[in-house]
């Protein structure tokens, strides 16, 4: 009989909100009809325990306290109106529009659902947050990795998680992590936390988690850093392996290599259909330059020139029977502000 149960719970909420003092169980039993109709004390106890549990499930803050100073063992219940209700809130039209846009932000199911129920509460409070500005921007954020939902739970509750993680080199290993934050950057999701196996802080990409995420129920032992900047941390992984190698001089064909020109310190236009530009080289610049094929020629430094030649040669004369044989060592991560497809993903959680 859900209707009568709903009725009982709503009346219980009203009763506990209406009272300034703690209400004893006995008083509740005489006040609320469904409790009064319980055939036995045990039946009432069971019903009341379940009801309390369900109010807590709704996030309704049920306070327990002693009814009077004289009888310390007499316990009662109440709901503090200030804790229960949404505080008074006034929004300017542009603030309401901003919240309207924010409510459409998530594509991820549980957050989208949470956003619309939040919006409903604001509307119920009489705030006009329904319509977003017609010429507004449209954010659409997805979080599809199966790991997202359980990790979010773990991050809220601060409990240790366990999962299998595949590194960029293909190695898969079990990890046990105290989760700190979940961050999306450049469209990818990262978990930052304390890796108990490595005994150090680590950043993990959610799309490289290969197993279901297990919430252990254990509380973290390590202190969460006061300030966490995952973006800086992810960047640090990238920068560590690819420092600034100084200037490089290139010849680029007229009308080509736009991204190189955009980042160039100087561009000298030539007469022969080729321009000379100077860029800052990083460890991964050779790969980036090879992409432009015959439209770019490295003049200086010799090491970069040799690296580009080695790459091109590996493709032009593939003596090797399989990939990887011709180039020694990994390609370090990119640091260019070019289109992301040509960025190598950042080496995280190694």
């Amino acid at each position: 009989m859900p209707a009568s149960k709903t009725e009982r719970l709503v009346n219980l909420v009203i009763c506990l909100l209406a009272s300034r003092t703690f209400v004893t169980k006995e008083r509740l039993r005489t006040t609320l009809e469904p409790y009064r109709n319980c055939p036995t004390d045990e039946a009432f106890e069971r019903m009341f325990e379940r009801d309390k549990e369900e109010l807590r499930e709704l996030g309704i803050p049920l306070e327990v306290g002693t009814v009077s100073a004289l009888f310390e063992d007499e316990v009662g219940y109440r709901i503090a109106p200030g804790e229960y209700a949404l505080p008074e809130l006034h929004l300017e039209p542009d603030e309401a529009a901003a919240i309207g846009i924010a409510a459409r932000f998530w594509q991820q199911a549980t957050l989208a659902q949470a956003a619309s129920s939040a919006l409903l509460k604001l509307k119920a409070a009489g705030l006009d947050v329904g319509e977003a500005a017609p010429a507004g921007i449209e954010p659409r954020v997805r979080a599809e990795a199966p790991a997202f939902e359980p990790l979010l739970e773990a991050v809220y509750d601060r409990q240790v998680v366990r999962f299998s993680y595949r590194r960029s080199d293909g190695e898969v290993r079990a990890r046990e992590v105290e989760p700190w934050t979940i961050d999306s950057w450049r469209g990818r999701w990262y978990l930052a936390g304390y890796d108990l196996g490595r005994d150090d802080a680590r950043v993990f990409r959610l799309d490289r988690i290969t197993s279901p995420v297990l919430l252990t129920g254990r509380a973290p032992q390590h202190k969460v850093p006061d300030r966490l900047d995952v973006r800086a941390q992810v960047d640090a992984f990238a920068v560590r392996s690819s420092g600034d190698l100084g200037p490089a001089t290139l010849r680029v064909r007229e009308g080509t290599c736009f991204p190189l020109r955009r980042g160039a310190g100087s561009v000298v236009e030539g007469e022969d259909g080729w321009d000379t530009i100077v860029i800052t080289a990083y460890a991964d610049t050779a790969g980036w330059l090879a992409e432009y094929g015959p439209d770019v020629v490295v003049l200086d430094p010799p090491s970069l020139r040799a690296a580009v030649i080695a790459r091109l040669r590996a493709i032009a004369r593939p003596e090797a029977t399989s990939a990887g044989a011709a180039v020694a060592g990994p390609i370090p991560p990119a640091r260019h502000a070019g289109p992301a497809e040509r960025r190598k993903p950042l080496e995280v959680a190694s």
């Binding site: 709503v10 909420v13 009203i14 909100l17 709704l58 996030g59 309704i60 109106p81 804790e83 229960y84 209700a85 949404l86 505080p87 919240i99 924010a102 409510a103 932000f105 998530w106 549980t110 957050l111 989208a112 949470a114 956003a115 129920s117 939040a118 919006l119 509460k121 604001l122 119920a124 409070a125 809220y156």
Partner: peptide, 15 residues
């Protein structure tokens, strides 16, 4: 109960 419930943690996080 003339005021709506407070936002839950999830609801607050989403917005």
């Amino acid at each position: 109960i003339v005021r709506p419930l407070r936002l839950s943690t999830r609801e607050a996080v989403a917005l």
